Simulated scan of single mutants.
Amino acid sequence: MVMITASGKGTSSTKGTNSTKVASSTSGTNSTKKASGTWSPPEFDESLPREVTVMEGEPAELPCVVFKLKGRAVSWIRQRDLHVISANGLTFTSDERFKVTLDNATSSFTLGVAEALRNDSGVYECQVNTRPKLSRPVSLKVLVPAARIAGATELFIRRGSTLVITCTAQLHPTAPSKVEWVHNSSVVSISGGRGGVSVHTERGGPQLSSTLSLAKVEMRDAGNYTCRPHSLTPASVTVFIVDDEVPAAMHHDSGVGRGGGCPLPALFYSALAALTCPALCPALCPALTCPVPPYPAPS
C-alpha cells in the first residue's frame, strides 16, 4: 500500500511536471507567433533619384521601388490635380504617353512618359495604400530647348572695333550642331564680300556654343543679329554702331533712365534724332550722347 501510494504520488508529480512543460511550451509558441506577426510597414528605395530632368520630346522615366510590399497596391498620383495615373500595372488616363512598367521580382513600379512635354513638368507621387498612406514624390522637369544670348538685348559698340556675340543652347542628344546667324534678314556668311567675319561653333554633350565675330564694324553692321540653332527657338540682339566712345549710360538694357532723368529708353531718343534733328537727342536726355551721325536740320 505504501509503495502504491508512493507510486501514485510519483505519477501525480510527473503529470504536474508534464503539464507545466506543456503550458510553458505553449506559452513560448504563442509568444513567438506574436513576435513574428509584428507589422512592418513598406519601405521605399531611397537610393533612387527624386528629380528627373529631360528635354522636351524625350522620354522620361520616374522610378519607384517598394520593399516589404506584401501584396499592397502601388499608385502614381499627379500632385497638381491629384489625378490617379495608375494602380499597380493598370493605367487610368487617356494620354497614351503615360505607362507603368511593373516588375514583381524587384517590386519596381516605373512611370514612363513618352515624348515628355513642358506641361508634364511637376511632382508625381508613388503611393502605397497603407493606413496612413505612404508616398514618395518624384519631380519631373521638362526643359524647352531654346537659344540664349547672355547680356542686354541692346548692344552699343564703337565703329572700327570688333563685334563679338555668343549664343548658347541645350540640344537634344540626336540634334545636329548646326547654327545659322542672321543679320537683319540676310544670313551671315564667312565667305561673303564683307570680310572679317568668323563663326566658331562647338558642342560638348547637349551644350552648344556659337560665337559670331565681325572685325572693324561700320554703320552698315548695325541692326538685328539672330542666332538660330537647328529646330530651336532663336535668340536675338540689336546692335548700334556709334562714332565716339560708348557712353556709360548706354550699357544698360533699360536705357539711360537710371540717374540721367530720361523717362524713355535710349533707343527712343536715338530714333527721334535720326528722323528729326540730332540736337533734340541731348536736349531731351542730357545724359545721352547721340549715337547717330549729324543730319541737316529739316527746313
Rank of each mutant, 00 (worst) to 15 (best):
R159I: 01
E154D: 15
T153L: 07
P176N: 13
T162H: 06
V164R: 12
V187N: 11
S161L: 05
A169F: 00
I165Y: 02
I190F: 01
V164F: 11
P173H: 05
G160T: 03
R159L: 01
E180S: 15
V187R: 14
F156I: 00
E180A: 14
V187M: 13
F156H: 08
L155C: 04
T174I: 07
S186W: 13
T168K: 01
P176I: 09
I165M: 08
V188W: 10
R159Q: 11
A152H: 07
N184F: 08
G192N: 09
E154F: 05
H172T: 05
K178D: 10
N184R: 15
V182K: 09
T168Q: 02
P176G: 15
N184W: 09
P176M: 11
A175L: 05
T162V: 12
R158I: 02
V164Y: 00
L155D: 02
V164L: 05
S185T: 15
S161P: 03
H183Y: 06
R194L: 10
V188S: 08
L155W: 03
W181K: 00
A175R: 10
L155Y: 12
A152M: 02
R159W: 00
R194E: 07
F156V: 08
Q170F: 07
L155P: 02
S191M: 04
C167P: 06
C167S: 15
I190Y: 00
L171M: 14
T153Q: 14
A152E: 10
T168E: 03
H172D: 12
W181D: 01
A175M: 06
K178P: 08
V182I: 15
T174L: 08
A152D: 14
G193C: 10
L163C: 03
L163R: 06
G195H: 04
G160W: 04
T174N: 05
V188D: 10
T168P: 00
F156K: 03
L163S: 05
W181C: 00
R194P: 04
A169Q: 04
S189T: 12
T162Q: 14
Q170G: 13
F156L: 10
H172P: 07
E154H: 13
G195A: 07
S161A: 09
S185H: 10
W181G: 00
I157R: 01
H183C: 06
V187W: 05
P176C: 10
L171D: 13
I157S: 01
T166Q: 14
I190G: 02
L163E: 04
V187P: 09
S191I: 04
H183A: 13
V182S: 05
E154K: 12
E154Y: 09
T162S: 12
R158Y: 00
V179Q: 07
G192D: 12
T174A: 07
Q170D: 12
I165G: 02
C167Q: 02
S185K: 15
L163N: 08
I190W: 00
H183W: 11
S191G: 14
V164T: 12
C167A: 11
V179T: 10
C167Y: 00
S189H: 08
